[in-house]
Amino acid sequence: MEPQKINKGDRNKIYFLVIVIAALIGTNAYLFFKDRQQSERFVTVSTEKDKLRLEVEKIEVELDKVNALNLDLNEKLVEEQKLARVKIEELKAALEKNQITQGELDKANTQINELKTFVKNYNDQIIQLQKDNIFLKNSRDSLQNTLRNISNKASNLENENANLNAKVKTAAALKLQSAEIIAFRTKSSGKKVEVTKSSTAEKLSVRFNVVPNQLAEKGHHNIYLRVFDPAGNLLADEGNHFEADGQDMQFSHSIFINYNNDDSTYVIDWANPKPFIKGIYTVILYADGNTMGKAQVELR
């Protein structure tokens, strides 16, 4: 049996179908590779965005570390940090966009690199600031120690001077070399007569000499007397006060003497505002805030 012959029209149809099928295959291949490229580009862009976000977070952490140091930043450093944080917020907002071009990614990458450089320089300044603070603290502590030592030395010198002045004052104080008390009455003629009985006594006369003292100041010295009766009562007016041996005291009588560091004898007469009684009267003398000495007399 002879094979059927394909006419020319059928052959043309077959050629046309082959061409259509080939075109469809080519179109599908193009669309497949195009989708694949877009998918790969999306993955690449998304990965780069995540990488940039991580870099921004690292920069922000570095700035937070600076704040955690609680350093006293100067105005320049504070302003620089504010500008950096504004830029960080801008980058965060840009990277949160759903769609971002490669140009925008490149710009963000450039800005992040600039921020990295800024943070490095910023940290270098902070480290230097810490060093300066440590140096200033050490200098301040050293100065305080020096001042404390100087103050202690000054205080010690002041105490030594005070002690020395006290010793000089004590050494320069007037002291009794000898003292004698007699009781007397005055006759109508004006003559003084020594007595020993309390019933006839009118006044006490204290005669004393001062120990020679080259350190004692020459000139006038105020001498205070405190007179105690046999019962131990101070015989003094309420308004008579002076200070001696660090205490406020009442005195019975006071006079001025002219001290010349010689053997002069000084006399103080004291009139008792009350009648004398039997017993021992005690007289204590003071000069320049110090006790000079005391003497006693007994009246029968």
Rank of each mutant, 00 (worst) to 15 (best):
K51V: 08
V66N: 10
E62V: 13
K107F: 12
N145V: 09
N121M: 01
L63E: 06
R85W: 05
K87A: 10
N149T: 15
L115I: 03
Y122C: 06
V61Q: 07
E57F: 15
N113E: 15
N67H: 02
E62P: 06
I112M: 10
L54H: 04
Q128W: 01
K120Y: 15
D64S: 15
L91M: 09
L147H: 11
Q111W: 03
V61W: 09
E40G: 11
D50L: 14
E75A: 08
R85P: 04
N123S: 11
L69D: 05
Q125R: 05
K116L: 13
I112S: 04
R85I: 06
E60I: 05
N138P: 02
E57R: 15
S46T: 13
L69H: 14
T146I: 05
I150H: 02
L147V: 13
D124V: 12
Q81I: 05
K87W: 02
A68S: 09
L105W: 08
R41G: 03
I88R: 01
V61P: 01
F118G: 05
I112T: 00
V86L: 15
K76P: 11
T146D: 10
A68R: 07
L69Q: 11
L77E: 06
D141E: 12
E90S: 09
A93Y: 05
L95S: 00
K82Y: 13
N70R: 15
L69W: 10
D72N: 14
N149H: 14
Q128E: 14
L83K: 10
K97G: 00
I127E: 14
E55W: 08
V78F: 10
K49N: 14
E104I: 06
N67G: 01
T101H: 01
E40C: 09
I134R: 08
N123R: 02
R140P: 00
N113L: 15
T47C: 06
N109I: 08
L69N: 11
E79S: 11
E96W: 10
E60T: 13
L129H: 05
